[in-house]
């Protein structure tokens, strides 16, 4: 089929499917399967009860053994690499061209070694497992499932594009009435996104275990003061 015919037929087919109501079966969300490679852009919005919303847009690349997240505004990012049974995490500071590397044992100590499936799908399988599936179907040509429920005083509303194993929306309402929302803005097949991860291959990398020996390194002093966390990870949601 040449491309001009395909370009004409695909919207027509979509229109027919929508008009008739898409009765195709919706794939199950199987958080055991390896998710397909994708690139995506999200927006995280935080609405405190007292007002004063803030939002951040961030990018996400997922391949079989490598996950990258990037916050262009903050010029920071996270790289996760799975190598055999080991997991490596690098927190990237693009403006400084430096990174902090966390090895498997560091992550264990920090209790910051998430399941690969959670990292790569941005979904917590344990959480999905306890929420109730409220609806499923097809939207804009892709299958989705929506899960809702409350866990430990937090109300969740999560919609997942099941073919790509990627959330299109995560809403979290805390007991403090703060609402955090993660929305999928755009998604692409891997390698087809208009933006690519910043190349960090020649960055000056510092081991997390060596932070304590860099007490006078201005970069280390600054990021500890800024990031605050015992592990300086970015959070998608």
């Amino acid at each position: 089929m040449n491309s001009s015919i395909r370009n004409a037929l695909v919207p027509l087919l979509m229109l027919v499917l929508v008009a008739c109501g898409d009765r195709r079966p919706v794939p199950q969300l199987d958080l055991v399967q390896s998710p397909p490679p994708v690139a995506a852009e999200f927006r995280t919005t935080v609405e405190p009860a007292q007002g004063g919303n803030s939002s951040t847009e961030w990018r996400f690349w997922r391949s079989h053994d490598r996950i990258e997240r990037e916050n262009p505004a903050a010029q920071s990012g996270d790289l996760w690499v799975r190598d055999g049974k080991m997991l490596f995490h690098t927190r990237l500071y693009h403006a400084d061209r430096r990174g902090i590397e966390y090895h498997n044992d560091d992550l264990q100590i920090l209790n910051a070694a998430p399941e690969w499936i959670a990292l790569s799908t941005l979904l917590d399988p344990g959480l999905i497992g306890v929420l109730r599936e409220r609806e499923n179907g097809w939207r804009d040509g892709y299958p989705y499932r929506r899960y809702t429920g409350a866990v430990e005083d937090v109300v969740w509303d999560i919609t997942v594009r099941t073919d790509w194993m990627l959330p299109t929306r995560i809403e979290r309402r805390g007991a403090d009435r703060q609402v955090e929302t993660v929305e999928l803005l755009r998604s692409f097949e891997f390698g087809r996104s208009p933006w690519q991860p910043v190349d960090s291959a020649d960055y000056d990398m510092l081991d997390y275990a060596d932070l304590g020996d860099h007490e006078r390194d201005p970069f280390v002093m600054r990021i500890q003061a800024e990031a605050g966390g015992g592990h300086m990870h970015g959070h998608a949601h």
């Binding site: 264990q108 100590i109 920090l110 209790n111 932070l211 304590g212 007490e215 280390v220 990021i223 500890q224 990031a227 605050g228 966390g229 015992g230 300086m232």
Partner: peptide
């Protein structure tokens, strides 16, 4: 084994010598 003992003063990147 993964428990982090409490610290009185938060130097959250690393405990010191």
């Amino acid at each position: 084994p993964n428990y982090l003992q409490e610290s009185a003063i938060p130097t959250v990147g690393a405990e010191t010598h």
